[in-house]
Structure formats: C-alpha cells, structure tokens
Amino acid sequence: MAAASSQPVPPSWKDIGKAANDLLGKDYPIHGSTLEVKTTTPNNVAFKVLGVRDSKDNKISGDLEAKWTDKKNGVNFTQAWSTANVLKNHVELENHIAKGLKLELITTLIPDKQTKNALIASTYKQPGFHTRQHLDLFKGPSVTADAVLGRDGFLLGTEATYDVKDGRLSKYNLAAAFHAPEYAVALHALSNLNVYTASYYHRVNADIETSARATYDTKGPASNVNLEVGTKTYLDNAAFVKAKINNSGILCLGYTQALRPGVKASLGLALDTVKLSDNTAGADAHKVGASFVFEA
C-alpha cells in the first residue's frame, strides 16, 4: 500500500473543475478591448498595467500593480491602484510558521468614499489535503472556510461562510470530482445547494480539447437546464482557436496567437444565432473584442 505522503496536494476549492471552466471561460475577449503590459526588474519587482475599454458603455478603466517577491524567504508584497481610485495592498508569507502554510493580509481602501476593507487569510496544503480560510473584518464580520480531500484522483470539497454577527451559516457549497491526466469530471452543489452544475473536460489528443457544462437552478424555471459545450484546437505551438455554444444559441469564437516571445494577441466574437436574420436586433446581440498582452 502506498504511503499517504505519496498522494499529491489536491487543488483548492476554487480550482475544482478548473480545466473545464478555463476552456469555456477564458480567451474569449468579447466584451471590449484590453491591453496588458507586464515587466520585471532585476531585483524581482514585477509591474503590471491593465487597460480595459468596455464596448457596452465605451468607458476605459485601468489598474497599475507592483509586486515584490522574495522567493528565498517566501514573502510577496503587492500594491495596486485603479482608475476608480481603489488602493489595494496584499502581503503573503509562505512556509514561515509551518511547511505548507501561507498567511495573507489583504486591505482595500477607496479614499473618495472613505470605504475600507480587510481580509486575513490562510492556506494550508499537505499531500491529500488543501484548506483555505479567510476572515472578513469589516463585512459581517464573516469567516469563510473551504477544504478539499484528494486521493487517487478523487476529490471531495466543501465551502461555508459563517456570519459572526448573526451567528449562522450564510453560505454552504459542496463538490465532488475526479481528475485524471487526460480528462476530469466535476459536480458542484452551490448557492446553499440550490444550484447544481456538472462539467467534464477531455484532452482528446495533443491538439484538441473539449469540455461541457450543465447548470440547473432549482429556483429557476421548471426543467430549465443550461448547457454549454466548447472545444479548443491548437493550430501550431503558437496559435489556437476556441469555440463554444450554449442552448440559448449564443456562439462564441476565439483566436489566440503568440506573435513573438512575450507578445500575445486574442480576438473574440459572440453571435446570437437566434437573431442572425433579425434586422431589429440591438447592438448587444453580437459582440466583438480583442486582447493584447506584452510581457518582458
């Protein structure tokens, strides 16, 4: 019998079903245009500038982030400032008190509104076990905790939020999954076990990946299950195309190309196939966008 230490560390709660979620959710820049620039200095300070133009209201927003990393001592310090005048600080300490333990302090300040928030978080990872907790000091206060157990590819996870002021559980979720190198399946019971999702991911071969996700809301219309299927095809080692469609007739297409090392461009298109022949369809029926990433 294999020793317990031979078991890998399972993914965190938010990463259960990640392969399917990424295939169906990422690389479709259909809501506007984004430009992201990443640079790193010789003394391990990483800068990131992100600009976004929303095609719906044509508003432009942006973020400036600086992150200092000391890998030897397991310390990260991140500061961010957005065009909405939101100031954010994030301090991470990893493997200081115990191996596999990470402590975090996340603070947010909006000077114009005198709004502030602070989170104290911890993550503990060991073979076969992954848990996270965070205390929201100004909202509630509330404590959110999740845990994932894993063995031989099987995963079982749970998440719950406890409202300290009201003295009750305000949120609880469950998940079960199986992860293998070429495929993964996941079941989620969310929103206090009122919303159920089932997803799968399959790497068919080195060039093709597929995924599907079904969602059922017990408080929504009777017998209404939302279904979404998608695929990703690698054209070569520098480009891929993605496509997905749901049962509402929304077809999304994505194309990503690495133009050169550190430069990536993505194009996205969303079509409401139900309204293709409808001349009265509004501007929101079809969407197009682009994303550019520069990294040095």
Rank of each mutant, 00 (worst) to 15 (best):
E159C: 00
E104G: 13
D278L: 06
D152C: 01
Y196K: 13
K275I: 04
S55A: 14
K244H: 04
G62P: 08
K56I: 12
L259T: 11
L135P: 11
N89H: 05
S291E: 13
G268Q: 04
A20F: 09
L253Q: 12
G282A: 03
L24E: 09
S61Q: 10
V91M: 10
L267E: 07
E36F: 11
L119P: 02
G32C: 09
A2I: 07
K38G: 07
D22L: 08
K59L: 15
A258F: 08
G74N: 13
K275V: 06
A160F: 00
A285I: 05
V49L: 04
G32H: 11
T39I: 14
R151H: 15
P29F: 15
T40E: 14
R203F: 11
V52K: 08
A176F: 02
L193Q: 08
F294Y: 13
G282F: 03
A66H: 06
G25P: 06
K116P: 01
T256I: 01
L149D: 03
A281R: 13
S266E: 02
A118R: 01
S223V: 14
T107H: 02
N279C: 05
S6E: 13
L155S: 00
L119S: 06
L64R: 04
N279T: 11
P127F: 05
R168W: 02
A121L: 10
T39P: 12
H90F: 03
V45H: 10
I97A: 01
L276I: 13
K165A: 07
D22R: 11
L259A: 08
V143F: 01
E94W: 12
T123F: 00
T215C: 11
S55R: 14
D27P: 02
K242Q: 12
V263I: 15
V195I: 13
D63F: 13
Y255D: 12
T107S: 08
A46W: 05
I106N: 07
D54E: 05
N173Y: 00
A212K: 06
Q114L: 01
K171C: 00
A147P: 04
R213M: 10
H134R: 06
D63P: 10
H286R: 03
L64D: 08
S191L: 11
L137D: 05
Y234V: 02
K99I: 07
D236V: 01
T273K: 06
A177P: 01
Q126I: 02
N247H: 03
T273L: 07
L276Q: 09
R53E: 13
K125Y: 04
V225G: 12
N173H: 00
L174Y: 00
A296T: 15
N95W: 02
D166F: 12
L190C: 00
Q133R: 10
A189Q: 05
D207K: 10
A3K: 05
Q114R: 03
F240D: 03
